[in-house]
Design a protein around this nucleic acid. Structure first.
Lengths: 246, 246
DNA sequence: ACACGCCCTACCATTGAATGGAAGGCTGCT
DNA sequence: AGCAGCCTTCCATTCAATGGTAGGGCGTGT
């Protein structure tokens, strides 16, 4: 074969190159990139040079490869979650100011919650590190809030394929959590991510009655006061939903 | 020709497709995308479908094309400015809390300042809208702060090609602004973006003595107090630089 | 000081993947 | 009912993509 001994198209390879960066790694050597993407060095080099010419990648002296500023710019300007984030930000700031807790916003992607925005607790040195982070549905309050408002079919499909690698959680338990969340209108989960924290999340519903996101807070166990947190979150979530339109 | 009547490679086309989204537009019809990218409908469709299969784009029913969540995730996880933003965020929050002003962080890309992070003034309904926005060097305090700390050669090259479309500013004026900023250690610009606001920015210098970013605030004219703002910004910028290492 | 290894870069004959016009199907409007 | 616009699929044509190989630069260990 001339094109692709491995049987993949050029597009496949471009994707492989971009996906070759492990989480949190911003810089890779060309040879390592070739390894990770499974491409011949020669091909990897050619692709990187082309993409670099357009600013999607950045090929520095000595074969250092980074994602391009231009790519970051394009993606952030036209992100599919742009409208959601803009609508949500003022409300998230309100919550941060009033409750002084870590606030986050997540959407459902596959069977995971993808965090698209996060404000850290005032004064904490902690940060927005986990923006663009993922959590499986069954171990995040945001994931449960999102899944509990999906259609019967989606939930059934989710539960069917469910399998906890650690074996600690069964599909039955998750089904119960989802039912509870659906009935209460919010999801809560204690000590799963961090033993001393509690997560609470509520769905954000747009004008078409579709659940498009989950708004949540992570609070220290000691400061757990459901009666104060849930109404605040629900009010903010309604505000976001109204702002979104659709 | 079989491949590309227009003489461009597959990679060129992938880039054209991604770049076809106008600023702030998150969704495009397939036919419009084909127009904007200058690709035959048939080719655009094929490319979009391939990219969509990998999650870099999202081809919805009815030919609606969006950027993919997966692309957003990948770019934000491995962004070249990740370390910078993480190092800067706590200091930016401090400034926001103490001064209660809009804070922003920019890097130099080409002859423009690219804003990589922004915190809005507390209480303002305004937002982080302009994250990923650009401003020409000569009409942004961040741009001036960045350029004034570049090497002689870069500055010369910049001034040589400088041309103001509106014709209001000459290279000589910019040269003066840069010299002033370099000497003072900060850049200021009044009423350029918005007639009632003042912009002040200082360079962020890493361990290798390279100016890697500019930290700035935008304040209403009425609240302009240089003697309070500049030291605060410079202190924060030093803190960021120390945190960065390199 | 030298040789070796590692990595980036450049070249070029081979070949099948990419191309895009045209035709088909769907939806909404007149 | 007819039309117009758009998405989708098909397939013969053709040259762009491929990757093994070789060259060059840099640092390391002997």
């Amino acid at each position: 074969m001339a094109n692709s001994a491995s049987g993949d198209s050029v597009v496949d390879r471009v994707v492989r190159v971009i996906e070759a960066f492990p989480e949190g790694v911003t810089s890779l050597q060309l040879s390592e990139l070739a390894d990770r993407s499974g491409l011949p060095l020669s091909s990897a080099h050619r692709l990187v040079r082309q993409l670099s010419g357009h600013g999607l990648l950045d090929l520095g002296a000595g074969g250092t490869v980074r994602l391009g500023l231009r790519l970051w710019e394009l993606v952030n300007r036209n992100s599919p979650t742009l409208a959601l984030r803009q609508a949500a930000m003022p409300f998230m700031e309100d919550i941060q100011q009033v409750l002084n807790q870590n606030v986050n916003l997540a959407v459902l992607d596959g069977w995971e919650a993808l965090f698209v925005e996060r404000l850290s607790r005032r004064g904490s040195v902690a940060n927005r590190a986990r923006v663009a982070g993922r959590m499986p549905v069954h171990i995040s309050s945001a994931g449960l809030a999102l899944m509990s408002h999906q259609s019967r079919e989606v939930q059934a499909e989710y539960l069917e394929q469910f399998a906890d690698p650690s074996g600690k959680v069964t599909a039955g338990v998750v089904r119960h959590l989802l039912a509870e969340a659906a009935q209460q209108g919010y999801a809560q989960l204690a000590g799963v991510v961090d033993p001393d924290t509690w997560g609470i999340a509520v769905p954000v519903i747009n004008g078409k009655r579709r659940t498009v996101a989950a708004l949540g807070v992570v609070v220290p166990l000691a400061e757990m006061r459901l009666q104060a947190l849930v109404p605040a979150l629900q009010t903010a979530a309604r505000g976001i939903g109204r702002q979104l339109g659709d």
